[in-house]
């Protein structure tokens, strides 16, 4: 090529060769120093802490962590403890209902808000404000509203329905649904906002096309819009799931795990055994199970989301 010819032609006058080669480690040194907190957090707390807990879940630690490995003994104990099994059942019921209701209600509300309505901002503000409140506040309010003596039940009875019973927080069979009501009240707004953002992100011409084709609105939503919003649904699913597994404050505030152990959840089990019961091994084993539950949802999602398009 000509470029090369030109270069070699003047090779005699070429400047002296390169100076010292670069030291890779020292390039952009300030940036690397500034990132030390992040590196420490990622490696020591997130990675190290997780590995540490998983490893110590195979030990006989009680009051203090002790590196005496006992295999799966803690897990055997865990799964033969009635409180843990109930915790898992509760989490399964709460999780499933919460997932389905949040997604459905969230989407329907978002679709309603997306109809170019008046006062959209006011409605949105109302639907989202519970999300700003803590689970403690949420739990305490609903504890009060669901109080059978003064709350909803007594009012409806006062209206003449003498036999009406709705006392979820005092009836072990349905207590977990009392928590579900509060949880949905607090969290649906977030899902609605996500869905609304997803709906707004859809090309307006899709709507024009479906109108020209004469497709009814509900069909457009069900067969065109919802499939197009798959990424939003998946993000919402991951968010809800990781929130469900962390469920703790709400239960503590609303029922304290009661009546009896009817509303116990895994996160509370972990806390009670680690910091109350002085039985660290059980706490580690239980938290490892929680990690496993999250991993089952998050890892496939991450592979789907980031696996395909890894680039620099």
């Amino acid at each position: 090529m000509r470029a090369e010819a030109a270069a070699t032609g003047r090779g005699a006058t070429s400047p002296p060769p390169s100076a010292a080669p670069p030291r890779r480690l020292l390039r952009n040194l300030t940036a690397k120093i500034a990132a030390i907190p992040m590196v420490l957090t990622a490696l020591v707390v997130f990675l190290g802490g997780t590995v540490w807990t998983v490893v110590y879940s195979f030990t006989s630690s009680r009051m203090l962590p002790r590196a005496e490995f006992v295999g799966l003994e803690q897990y055997d104990r865990l799964w033969s403890t009635r409180r843990w099994v109930i915790s898992i059942e509760n989490l399964a019921i709460y999780g499933l209902c919460s997932l389905v209701f949040s997604l459905v209600i969230g989407f329907v509300l978002a679709a309603l808000l997306d109809q170019k309505i008046r006062y959209e901002n006011a409605f949105r503000t109302i639907l989202l404000y519970p999300f700003a409140l803590s689970f403690i506040v949420t739990g305490l309010v609903w504890q009060w509203i669901l109080d059978p003596e003064f709350g909803l039940q007594s009012i409806i009875r006062g209206l003449g329905f003498e036999n009406f019973t709705f006392d979820p927080l005092y009836n072990p069979d349905i207590a977990i649904f009392g928590i579900l009501i509060a949880g949905l009240w607090q969290g649906t707004g977030l899902i609605m906002i996500l869905m609304l953002a997803g709906l707004r992100g859809i090309d307006g011409e899709i709507w024009k096309a479906s109108r020209v084709d004469g497709i009814p609105a509900w069909k457009t939503y069900l067969f065109i819009i919802v499939p197009m919003m798959r990424p939003v649904f998946i993000t919402a699913l991951v968010l809800i799931t990781s929130g469900i597994v962390k469920l703790y404050d709400l239960v503590v505030a609303q029922t304290g795990g009661g009546p009896g152990i009817a509303t116990e959840v895994p996160a509370k089990y972990v806390y009670d055994y680690m910091f109350g019961g002085q039985n660290l091994g059980q706490g580690f084993a239980a938290s490892t199970m929680m990690l496993l539950a999250v991993a089952i949802v998050v890892i496939p999602w991450a592979m789907l989301e980031f696996g395909g398009k890894r680039r620099g």
Partner: peptide, 20 residues
């Protein structure tokens, strides 16, 4: 490191509580 950090957001706090 950033990827670890993001995955960390999904780890239940209970797992990292005692090491912390």
């Amino acid at each position: 490191f950033f990827t670890i950090l993001i995955f960390g957001a999904f780890i239940p706090y209970q797992v990292m509580l005692y090491p912390m």
